[in-house]
Design a protein around this nucleic acid. Structure first.
Length: 288
DNA sequence: ACCCAGGCGGGCG
DNA sequence: CGCCCGCATGGG
């Protein structure tokens, strides 16, 4: 089958993949070739980027062109008008620099359950270890993905129901530490009490409210899931890097409460807090 | 050796 | 309520 060719503008595959979103944790990316192997629910997509961040193409193998286009348009938020978004979140020199440095970095939309797991694992953790743990879970317990000839080409994330049967000890062996208990609980809860897919078209406050019912999911993780699992651009997750960076840039290094930072971000970035946050996080983390 | 990481729940005042 | 603490584990 011919590869799908998708025109993209204001898009950078590398920054999008590497910027600490769930995609980072369970797909294979080769920066030299600018090529991504990405497991969706049913296919293993082989994605190659050519061109520049202003004007490029995605060449996608591994599925029909129609599927590839539909899936990636959603997952990589290809319909976002980045020029408009940038003009609205570029409120000062720091934001302008962040946008310039990581031009084309998109938010992504990931499977809600995968997103939930990734961000439960993320708490009080670092990117390298989050990646290691999630990959190990997929390797050990994931579902096989087959191509048209029935050949196994990769694995995808286990469902909550599949994960319900993984013991705490097995989860600990994946390096999840004290989060193993939360993972077990979330697997049960999202199998028996909360169907994440039914939150799909709900409002951000409603989605967050429901997510907070999962033991092991707090304010920050719920915002991450709302943003990267459900696409709520008004969510503004505040982790240590975002907090630290905002205090440094906008409050002369003075410590602020999470609540105050939420208020600040709401006033400044309005319903595009999620995008602003992604640039603050990634640029702030690599600052100096 | 020591400190920290895309935080959270529980316990205490 | 707000604040403080412990939590597993590997890398700097």
């Amino acid at each position: 089958m011919n590869p799908a060719k998708i025109r993209v503008t204001d898009f950078d595959l590398r920054y999008t993949i590497e910027s600490g979103q769930p995609l980072t944790f369970f797909s294979d990316y080769d920066p030299k070739k600018n090529r991504l192997i990405y497991p969706t629910a049913s296919h293993l997509l082989d994605i190659k980027f050519t061109g520049t961040s202003e004007n490029g193409n995605l060449l996608v193998k591994g599925s029909s062109p129609a599927y590839a286009k539909r899936e990636l348009t959603k997952r990589l938020r290809l319909n976002d008008d980045m020029k408009d978004i940038y003009s609205r979140i570029s409120t000062d020199e720091f934001m302008a620099n962040a946008i310039k440095k990581y031009y084309g970095m998109r938010l992504t939309i990931n499977d809600p359950w995968e997103t939930t797991l990734c961000f439960i694992i993320s708490q009080y953790n670092n990117l390298k270890r989050i990646r290691g743990s999630t990959r190990k879970i997929v390797d050990l317990f994931g579902t096989e993905i087959k191509d048209d000839e029935g050949k196994v080409v990769g694995k995808r994330f286990p469902t909550s129901e599949q994960m319900m049967h993984i013991t705490e000890k097995q989860l600990m062996e994946c390096g999840t530490g004290f989060r193993a208990r939360y993972i077990r609980n979330a697997s049960e809860y999202c199998t028996n009490n909360l169907d994440l897919h039914k939150l799909q078209n709900k409002s951000y406050p409603k989605i967050k409210e429901e997510l907070l019912e999962i033991a092991g999911v707090g304010d920050k993780v719920a915002d991450c899931i709302a943003l990267m699992g459900f696409g709520c651009l008004e969510a503004f997750p505040i982790d240590v890097w975002v907090k630290r960076t905002i205090e440094r840039i906008y409050f002369k290094g003075k410590e602020k409460k999470i609540k105050d930072i939420h208020r600040f971000a709401n006033e400044r970035f309005q319903n595009l807090g999620g995008y602003a946050q992604q640039y603050i996080f990634w640029h702030g983390m690599h600052y100096e």
